[in-house]
């Protein structure tokens, strides 16, 4: 069954089209005026203005390593994060802690811990898998560098970004 779509009957004002052009131009002019007077605020001038204050708690920025309250590096070089890492951004070379050391009973620590920030996808699986609460995704997001080598975060850099994190894992603390 044929269905005839009713065509609208245009008035002559609509037919000559010019009034609607003028109306449209008035609308765009209104937008321009509001922008010029600063009434429309839609753009944040990065890097002068930053969004950091509104950043949610669960934000996943750059992965970092943390030390505990005794200055012990929490990582025990179990390499779970290295294995779970989907883009294989993490490289760990474990070493034994010498027997004379203060934390000798922990037995293992990373000799080399590198995260290639060009590869990292900020998925947070390393943080999730870590049994020692040693690796955390912090809120740094502006990770830049001018060489590829600079973009590989080594242990020193990772501890510098991570800082100290207390609590949660107490099993290595001396017995009371």
């Amino acid at each position: 069954m044929a269905y005839v779509v009713p065509r609208p009957n245009l008035t002559w004002k609509e037919k000559i089209y010019l009034p609607s052009i003028v109306a449209g131009m008035m609308i765009t002019f209104k937008h321009l005026k509001r922008m010029l007077k600063g009434e429309t605020k839609v753009v944040m001038q990065y890097p002068e203005e930053k969004w950091d204050a509104q950043m949610p708690e669960h934000y996943r920025g750059a992965p970092t390593l943390v030390t505990d309250e005794h200055g012990r590096e929490r990582c025990v070089a179990c390499q779970l994060c290295e294995f779970i890492c989907p883009p294989r951004a993490i490289t760990i070379k474990p070493e034994e802690i010498p027997s004379g050391d203060k934390f000798a009973k922990v037995e293992k620590r990373p000799k080399v811990f590198e995260i290639d920030m060009i590869r990292c996808i900020y998925c947070g699986l390393c943080e999730e898998v870590c049994p020692e609460q040693a690796i955390f995704l912090r809120k740094d997001y502006a990770i830049t560098g001018i060489t590829r080598a600079e973009m590989v975060h080594d242990k020193a850099k990772l501890y510098e970004l991570g800082g100290v994190f207390t609590g949660l894992v107490n099993k290595w603390n001396p017995k009371k």
Binding site: H31, L32, M35, V42, V43
Partner: peptide, 10 residues
């Protein structure tokens, strides 16, 4: 610039 301002950009 004008196109940006009209479209609420900078």
């Amino acid at each position: 610039r004008v196109s940006a301002l009209i479209q609420d950009r900078v």
